[in-house]
């Protein structure tokens, strides 16, 4: 028996249907858990929604805290991605440097985030520089490893071709190396985006007087579970916006040759 190819629109509708079914199942389980446990432990979806509306309308979340966290996240992502990219390119081109950087990479990827937060607070105090440096430190190794993987996968045949046609170093870097690392780099950036919001909020909870993490710390102190849940939704929204509106379109554009 053969299956006729699924029309594109029908396939999309079916995929959307499965996603909505997944979301409905999640909400159902959440509501069931809220009914089973105290609202101090699990806030119901409805209570979370009300807390979210309150957060967005009645507090300075959108005018003060969210922009600060978003800026820290963007700066940390930029710093970490930039450092990881440059270090990865250099280490990919220079094996001794790669060996030199291996211990630092291992340490940064192995030490728990909360320990790095403590050390960063001791070194940099509280506030934006600490949060940004921290996010950068956590993100850089992820990007570094992805770039190295990409550098290892550069087709030597393409490098020979570039040599025959005497492509200058800048052209080789742009048209051969950077494009070879584009796919693993794009995947690493998606992971890094999620990590950056996590680490920024963690750092703000522990040592900042502004940002989503600051409101989260206050909500935890006041046992406002619904507000904590609502802040989780806000941070998910930030990640979703960055990933779906910025990174995915960029990824599609850079990797359009694969289609």
């Amino acid at each position: 028996m053969t299956c006729a190819p699924e029309p594109r629109a029908e396939g999309r509708a079916r995929a959307l249907g499965w996603r909505l079914a997944g979301a409905a199942l999640f909400l159902g389980l959440w509501q069931a858990a809220a009914l089973r446990f105290s609202d101090l432990v699990v806030a119901s979806p409805r209570a979370t929604w009300d807390a979210l509306v309150e957060l967005l309308t009645e507090t300075d979340l959108c005018t003060a805290h969210l922009p600060v966290s978003a800026l820290r996240m963007a700066l940390g992502l930029g710093l970490g991605a930039g450092a990881g990219l440059l270090a990865g390119l250099a280490a990919g081109a220079c094996p001794p440097l790669r060996r030199m950087l291996a211990p630092a990479r291992w340490v940064l990827m192995s030490v728990p985030g909360v320990v790095i937060v403590m050390v960063a607070m001791l070194w940099l105090g509280m506030g934006t520089p600490m949060v940004v440096c921290l996010a950068g430190l956590v993100i850089a190794p992820t990007v570094y490893v992805a770039v190295l993987e990409g550098m290892d996968s550069v087709d030597p045949g393409l490098l020979e071709m570039a040599g025959v046609y005497r492509l200058p170093t800048a052209m080789r870097l742009r048209h051969v190396h950077l494009m070879s690392i584009a796919a693993p780099l794009a995947a690493a950036l998606v992971v890094a985006t999620g990590n950056s919001i996590r680490i920024v909020i963690l750092a703000e909870v522990l040592g900042a007087n502004q940002g989503l993490g600051r409101i989260l710390a206050a909500a935890r102190s006041n046992l406002e579970t619904a507000r904590i849940y609502a802040l989780v939704l806000v941070s998910l929204g930030v990640v979703a916006f960055t990933e779906l509106c910025l990174l995915r379109p960029l990824q599609r554009r850079v990797l359009r040759w694969r289609a």
Partner: peptide, 11 residues
């Protein structure tokens, strides 16, 4: 140089 395999930049 015409290589045995085309060696075109895929991107």
């Amino acid at each position: 140089f015409v290589f045995q395999e085309h060696r075109l930049l895929p991107w």
